[in-house]
Design a protein around this nucleic acid. Sequence first.
DNA 1: GCTAATCCATACGCAACCGTATGGAGGCCG
DNA 2: CGGCCTCCATACGGTTGCGTATGGATTAGC
Lengths: 179, 179
Amino acid sequence: MTQNPRPRLSAEDWLMAGFRALANHGPSALRAEALARDLGTTKGSFYWHFKDLPDYLAKLIMLWEPRAFSDILASLDPDLPPRGRLEQLCLLAAGCRDLSYGGIALEPALRAWALSAPDVAEALKRMDMRRIEVLTDLCIGSGITDPAAPRALYALAVGIEALDDDAGTEVMRLLLRGL
Amino acid sequence: MTQNPRPRLSAEDWLMAGFRALANHGPSALRAEALARDLGTTKGSFYWHFKDLPDYLAKLIMLWEPRAFSDILASLDPDLPPRGRLEQLCLLAAGCRDLSYGGIALEPALRAWALSAPDVAEALKRMDMRRIEVLTDLCIGSGITDPAAPRALYALAVGIEALDDDAGTEVMRLLLRGL
DNA sequence: GCTAATCCATACGCAACCGTATGGAGGCCG
DNA sequence: CGGCCTCCATACGGTTGCGTATGGATTAGC
């Protein structure tokens, strides 16, 4: 493809390729030699940048976890009132294919990966709890008293992403209207 | 475990073991030799009952698809009014870990499998559409006019299953209350 | 009780992948 | 130019799983 100037690769290049492969082909695509083929190189590069496959996979989720969370907070407009920030956040989650990594559906693939990788499951669980905390704060600030509301908003966002629903924004708006 | 009378296996035994392995360990557990170890036998039995692995996997989804749909309809009480059937169906989906195959979380694993198996993705898409049709009929019969309502109910159920949320029933009730 | 069909165990060749070892290509600095 | 450091290509042994082949064990029919 694009191997004009002999493109030397960095560790982050490998990690980004991993996110792409994960989103496009699922967790089974996270293999050294398959990724090397995608990058037009060999696994010699892989094993220079990473000790082994578990090391690479651990760095993948260590790179994802803080970024996926800070991206959410960074997308919030601090000038808006809590209710506005809540709606902005929910509609963003329901509309975007994903918040980072180039619009690919990363999170469903991550949940798929979690089924066979306990540490990934733990990272996802942490992420879910932190996000629900954010939603809880925004709900409280918006005067939404139902304690199930944050979980409903989050579960709906997860479902919309899993279904890859084109009408995700409309669906999310329906729930927000009832709160 | 229980190999007292030399338990001859049927094709359905292998398929049920496949559903268990899929739900408990994800799609990567769907391998002939691993399943054979689970069943306390060898792959000689596997390749007698099935031509090869694709044949087995195809029969897995061919067994799942009609059953997972008819189980939903069978759970509906025909004596209830549409609104009652709608709530019964949604609360069942939100509360049960799964509708069949022994209370294991099969559907999230199936969505995970769909990421790397296009035919599974198609079967899931068909299932999603048929279920949303059922929800649409029930919503119309209940006087719910918002066209996004069926998709919201379904996406919420999918999200609750993916999150394995203990408060799924409460969450679903919140959405139903707003319709 | 003999035969035939059904079902499973074992052994084999094959392919994919992992991780390592080793050498080579290219830049940077003296 | 010479030496060093970074990064990658290649080759190898080991493991795991697939699919086949073949024989043994169990059951059913007659």
